[in-house]
Design a protein around this nucleic acid. Structure first.
Lengths: 212, 212
DNA sequence: GTAGGATGCGAGTGATCCCTCACGTTCGTC
DNA sequence: GACGAACGTGAGGGATCACTCGCATCCTAC
């Protein structure tokens, strides 16, 4: 769960030494979340973030070398939360996956993903679509998805319910379908679809696809 | 297929009277596509667009009142192309949909969507994710999706193969799944999945979901 | 209590970008 | 060929924004 390896231009200026400083750092990240959600990336200015944190810009730049470093930290936190949530939702023993009905493997993962996006709906759009992300972070995301796809492909190949002829392709589409549907619908506040209904329906979709 | 109804701040300054002017307008839109694709929205400056079109900024602003008006026109064109492609891919007679195997209704639509995104991969990301879209245009997109979902829901309810208990929800998820999977994978140049394979697999996914 | 480092401040700098405007060039018409 | 309208030009105004720097204030160790 290591964070993105940062170039020097994205590393914090100095390490906080006093408790006050740690709190200030947290206040900045919190404020950034609110400001980005409300104003979007372009209009989420560092001055606005500092003001929302009850600070001056100068202080903000003591903790983050530039605006994008704040963004990278928010995205990294979200990726970590997602990874943790998915791993926690999976059965502990990978060998046991084949013994469980497919819906009981997929269902909790989808539910975890939906829950992860239930709050801060607008923020996710900003972090993952609107804002430019540094190549290093994109690479990290890609690697994570690749690992997850490989893990899933192995599981699918071994699972008796699965009929998909190409487990690799099926794994890729499964992950993309879950991610993009969750992002698209759970992120849309006007969808009018309850989170649990959405999770159940996405699970139905994926299981149907894999066992067709 | 009317374009987005534009506020006065998005309407063109004047109508082209000479053929040269029409060509200039087209050159600007063409250049904008290339520039947005290469530089993204924020760095796709009007000066760069004008230069890429072999013009000066002043001329650009004779045809478009501001930068966003160019973007609106590009997005509108893409929406229109998508609507046309989907309608053309559907069987002419809506009554006949129930008589056809579901895969033969869904398949051509998916193939049309994939083809629509095969070129200008990066551009779609800029137009539909990165760039801020005016509310009027968002409303138009939503309305289109709502109409399409209603149309599809009716078809699903009448189709003998379909087992989904809630056709409205199923229609919504079907459309979102197709759109978001196409956007995510067809748009990703590094995916390594051939367009026809992708279309076939998305079709499999949707049909499996609807007939599970 | 006091020295020195850590933290906080905010007006200002330089850069970028959208858009305008005063003027030159080309086209269509008679 | 000459006149007016359509079209094209590009330097620069005005605004915004990321980021800096010189200084004030607070904290901690001795």
């Amino acid at each position: 769960m290591a964070a993105t390896t940062l170039g020097p231009h994205l590393r914090p200026r100095k390490q906080p030494r006093q408790r006050r400083a740690h709190e200030t750092r947290a206040r900045i990240l919190d404020a950034a979340r609110r400001v980005f959600e409300e104003h979007g990336y372009a209009h989420g200015t560092t001055n606005r973030i500092a003001a929302a944190a009850g600070l001056s810009v100068g202080s903000l730049y003591q903790y983050f070398p530039n605006k994008d470093a704040i963004l990278v930290e928010l995205v990294d936190a979200h990726i970590d939360a997602g990874t943790t949530a998915v791993l926690a939702a999976l059965p502990a023993d990978p060998e046991g996956w084949s013994a469980l009905p497919l819906a009981e493997v997929i269902g909790p993962v989808v539910a975890a993903m939906v829950a992860l996006h239930a709050d801060g709906r607008g923020l996710h759009r900003v972090l993952f679509e609107e804002a430019p992300r540094p190549p290093e972070q994109l690479a990290r995301l890609r690697a994570l998805e690749r690992d997850l796809a490989a893990l899933l492909a192995g599981t699918l190949a071994a699972h008796p319910e699965v009929t998909a002829p190409d487990p690799g392709l099926a794994a890729r589409l499964t992950i993309d379908a879950i991610e993009s549907l969750v992002h698209r619908i759970a992120t849309d506040a006007t969808s009018g679809i309850a989170d649990d209904v959405l999770a159940a329906e996405i699970t139905r979709l994926v299981v149907a696809y894999l066992t067709a």
